[in-house]
Design a protein around this nucleic acid. Structure first.
Length: 481
RNA sequence: UCCUCAGUAGCUCAGUUGGUCAGAGCGGCGGACUGUUAAUCCGUAGGUCGUAGGUUCAAGCCCUACCUGAGGAGCCA
């Protein structure tokens, strides 16, 4: 066993060192040919493209030939040759064939043709074998890798916030309970309530809805940290951009103010997009084709004016628009949409912006990513830094066309008295004593944000449904595989 | 959770006002073809029409409930 296998199809396809013996292993994507010669397209996941294996049928046992069906796994020993066909540069002339795994053609559900994404979602265990999902997950990998590279190069430290937390305090959504208590007969205390002192942790525990509060503790010691891990929300949301289990990236930076925070977020997003444009051009080109096809079938008013790659370049080459919440309200109120009463929800200072408002700003008015900042404090979380005006907090949301909010963040309140006034009002002070202590001892201005990893993958791959950019999506009523 | 739409063969879908309406393409299977490119050509087998009730002489089609899926809203990343 070699540590670094050199027979990946990705490597072979780039090779011009012909007439040498090679071994390829992969799954049959397609097979065709005549009585005497069969052309088998093999894919091993190392890249989008298949390698063509030429099989002179007479040279092999009928038993073997029969088993070369779509979906079967093969090991082929043969010779790498310059291809006689026009669609590929090289091919493998088979000398020895081993069927590593059969696939009964009457039962194997994937065919060499386009399947609906809904159908593929039902067979999520097999969809990594399709061209589309191969491309998506290779890009997902590259994005994840780029996240670490970006932060590492800039002196950030990878920080692991806990996945199980006993503080149900973030207020970011409904939580999943973690318990070892017997569901059939939960122990009760004198008041009749469930006695969590008998539970595993001796108290109530949940899966995390955000690693932010713990990341702040890291930043107030290590300076620059980021988390990148799974996050769980038990919201009953059924949309194309929500999951019950998703991955979030949360950088947290000591001595960064709101402006530094915005600069970092914009630079970070552009870096990630540039990384994929540089390293995933083959997969992107494939997804582009798919994107264009899908786009042309949409209604005129829903069609994207730009292609996928064009859209990514556009984001790279343009500065994000940065406006305050107050300015955004002004723009919305002055808009023709507002005058024609096309908004379903009223627009006035103090409201939480609705999807239709965000979409108008991003897709109609500015037509590029928008950073909104300085929101009314009533509609934002308790930990956000309060502005001098007494009305707003230093929140920031980054809105992208098509997917809405991709980043949410803020400068954090570092003044103990102001922060505690908020936790007092919400009854969180006792639970968050450790969080408050960071403000009591050597407090420091700091900022951070959360980036929804799947939403980023959605934007980069052009996939409309978030369930198609994570290997095993979890959503209400659905946790198969 | 709310609103809207959909569920017919393995997949993608057609099925007109309820009355030969159980259909097509792809895939599968059988055959033809010495180099194909989601190959082509000929032949063939697949379906309690999501589930349960109801209306009717008669239901894939109408009504009710439920299940599943999709899209939109809310929540947010």
């Amino acid at each position: 066993m070699t540590i670094m296998k050199q027979n990946a199809i990705r490597h072979l396809l780039q090779s011009t060192d012909f007439d040498r013996p090679v071994v390829v292993q992969g799954w049959v994507r397609n097979r065709r040919g005549s009585k005497s010669v069969a052309f088998v397209h093999l894919n091993d996941g190392s890249c989008l493209a298949n390698i063509q294996v030429v099989v002179n049928v007479e040279e092999f046992a009928e038993e073997i030939i029969k088993k070369i069906a779509v979906g079967a796994c093969l090991e082929v020993e043969g010779k790498l040759l310059a291809s006689q066909g026009s669609e590929q540069a090289c091919e493998v002339l088979a000398e020895k064939l081993v069927i590593l795994g059969e696939a009964d053609p009457e039962k194997y559900p994937l065919q060499p043709k386009a399947h609906s994404l809904e159908f593929l979602r039902e067979i999520a265990h097999l969809r990594p074998r399709t061209a589309t999902f191969g491309a998506i997950f290779r890009i997902r990998h590259h994005l994840g890798f780029a996240v670490h590279q970006y932060f590492h190069e800039r002196g950030f430290f990878y920080w692991q916030s806990p996945i199980i937390t006993a503080s149900d305090a973030e207020g970011a959504g409904e939580t999943f309970r973690v318990t070892t208590l017997p569901l059939a007969q939960m122990p009760k205390n004198e008041t009749g309530a469930i006695d969590f002192t008998q539970d595993f942790f001796g108290r109530e525990a949940n899966l995390t809805v955000s690693g932010q509060l713990e990341a702040e503790l890291g930043a107030l010691g290590l300076g620059l940290v980021y988390t990148f891990g799974p996050t769980f929300r038990a919201e009953n949301s059924n949309t194309t951009r929500h999951l019950a289990e998703f991955w979030m990236i949360e950088p947290e930076m000591a001595f960064y103010d709101a402006k530094d925070n915005q600069d970092l977020a914009e630079d970070f997003l552009k870096y990630l997009i540039r990384f994929v444009l540089t390293h995933c051009s083959e997969d992107l080109a494939f997804l582009e084709e798919r994107f264009q096809k899908e786009n042309s079938q949409k209604k005129k008013e829903e069609q994207s004016e730009m292609g996928l790659i064009e859209k990514l370049r556009f984001v790279l080459e343009n500065e994000f628009v940065r406006i305050s919440y107050t300015e955004a309200i002004d723009i919305l109120q002055a808009s023709p949409y507002h005058k024609k009463k096309k908004f379903k929800f009223e627009v006035k200072w103090g409201i939480d912006l609705q999807s239709e408002h965000e979409r108008y700003l991003v897709e109609k008015h500015f037509r590029k990513p928008v950073i909104l900042f300085d929101y009314p404090k009533e509609i934002k979380a308790f930990y956000m830094k309060q502005n001098e005006d007494g009305k707003t907090v230093r929140a920031m949301d980054i809105l992208f066309p098509g997917i809405g909010e991709i980043v949410g963040g803020s400068q954090r309140e570092e003044v103990l008295e102001k922060l505690q006034a908020r936790t007092d009002a919400l009854g969180l002070t006792q639970n968050l004593w450790w969080y408050l202590e960071t403000r009591r001892f050597g407090t420091a201005p700091h900022s951070g944000f959360g980036l929804g990893f799947e939403r980023l993958v959605q934007f980069v791959t052009g996939m409309g449904n978030i369930r198609d950019v994570i290997p095993y999506p979890r959503s209400p009523q659905s946790a198969d595989f």
